[in-house]
């Protein structure tokens, strides 16, 4: 059931999608969105969420949403790995620090060199 009471629901059971909801979702997703892109995003999200309404959105209570179906079989737990020191990150190993550093734009003294942290002093 849609619990956000500021969005009353549509016939299909989905909440109405508007520009403000798209802006809010884009902020949560850390995605810049141009105002000019919003109408199309509204349209696409409406279409996709109408498709998703086939699941019976709104027909289940929150309490049963995460309940596994009875008899759900689970795959066997994988065996534990051997308790021995890993050597992959030693020189010559597959994760040799030098090999890792070769992919970095700047690498000095065994460490990544990064731009200054933004917003800091």
């Amino acid at each position: 059931m849609v619990t956000d009471e500021s969005h009353p629901g549509t016939d299909s059971g989905r909440p109405p999608i508007d520009a403000e909801l798209v802006r809010k979702t884009a902020r949560l997703a850390r995605l810049e969105i141009d105002e000019s892109e919003i109408p199309q995003m509204v349209e696409h999200m409406e279409k996709i969420l109408d498709l998703v309404a086939d699941l019976g959105i709104g027909s289940g209570s929150q309490s049963d949403s995460f309940t596994e179906t009875e008899g759900e079989s689970t795959l066997p737990v994988s065996e534990w790995r051997e308790d021995v020191p890993a050597t992959e990150d030693q020189p010559g190993g597959p994760r040799d620090p030098k090999a890792l550093g070769s992919n970095a734009p700047d690498w000095r003294d065994g460490a990544f060199v990064t731009p200054r942290v933004v917003g800091g002093d």
Binding site: P15, G58, S59, G60, S65, T67
Partner: peptide, 11 residues
């Protein structure tokens, strides 16, 4: 929305 969508989809 997580219960209505993600939770339902898992079910």
């Amino acid at each position: 929305y997580i219960d209505a969508y993600y939770g339902k989809a898992q079910q």
